[in-house]
Design a protein around this nucleic acid. Structure first.
Lengths: 157, 157
DNA sequence: ACATTCCATACTATTTTAGTCAAGATATAT
DNA sequence: ATATATCTTGACTAAAATAGTATGGAATGT
């Protein structure tokens, strides 16, 4: 099972992008500052995200990254897959050759679990997260904005 | 998130125990042979399982390990917790201090996911696994038995 | 006595994580 | 044209975790 800081960083960075990519592209330096992730590490992660066509980039001053699709069309699982190759609780990658080319005793259990995790992460898009109250509140804090009632006053965003 | 070979080995070994601990205690050497897990590694895992009172042991010839409770009363999550301390997809261990003593942008997402995983693994006991057809078939293969219709012929077990 | 089994600890090779560092390539603003 | 911001690539590294090995014991049944 692969769900480590790496995947969490990637989802967090992509969510930051979704929250800030209203008009201009977002430079990694901004994401680094807001989310507390090292710039060089972000560069590695975004190289993979770009290869998986989840983001596109613009170089030079004023450049940065943009989501390649609408936030609603990017499920969380796509981000994790782009970084980690797979979300899989089995040892054999679902092939069923865990022991002597046969499935091991608990193969089916891990297959079931993998499916559950996949379903959960496939059912939530970056767009879903953007519209969550607590995400907006945290994002406002990170931007140094003071927001009392996020949803009722969101015209100020 | 912690769900690695370590936890899988532990669950597999415990299931082997549940399948074979009808009467006499089961020596780790048998589990090692049947499940293809190194004996020394099993010893480390069972030290933790014993400290967590999931199994009890008997030394000397004819000795080995036994389940400390009925297989029906041991959820899979208990085994993993005994080995890994926790099943938790967050970075902060659920404390919500992931970034500057405040929850990070994706804190809630990982909390939700952790809860789903926990629910799934808490809802399945070793007893549930023992009664599964495919587990019985695999177990029969490992024991070198030829079983055509496992459920219909299980008096031979 | 002896073989079997658990028990404990220390050690190690490999892999992964989570970066750092350096050297570019490219586009934009001036 | 030049300076600068930004992406792009690749090599390197420290720390941790994984998946073991190795060694030496302690208890117990025969």
């Amino acid at each position: 099972m692969k769900l480590t800081t790496k995947g969490r960083y990637a989802v967090t960075a992509m969510l930051d992008l979704a929250l800030h990519a209203k008009d201009a592209p977002v430079p990694l330096a901004d994401i680094s500052r807001r989310q507390g992730i090292s710039l060089s590490y972000l560069e590695q992660l975004f190289a993979k995200l770009r290869r998986n066509e989840l983001v596109n980039s613009a170089r030079g001053p004023g450049g940065g990254y943009r989501l390649n699709r609408a936030a609603e069309d990017i499920p969380v699982v796509a981000v994790i897959n782009a970084i980690n190759e797979n979300v899989d609780a089995t040892r054999c990658g679902g092939l069923g050759n865990c022991q002597d080319n046969e499935p091991c005793l608990t193969h089916e259990l891990w297959m079931d679990l993998s499916e559950r995790i996949h379903e959960f992460l496939a059912g939530i898009s970056l767009g879903d997260l953007v519209s969550r109250r607590e995400v907006q509140a945290i994002s406002a804090r990170q931007d140094g904005r003071v927001v009392e009632r996020v949803l009722m006053a969101d015209s100020s965003l």
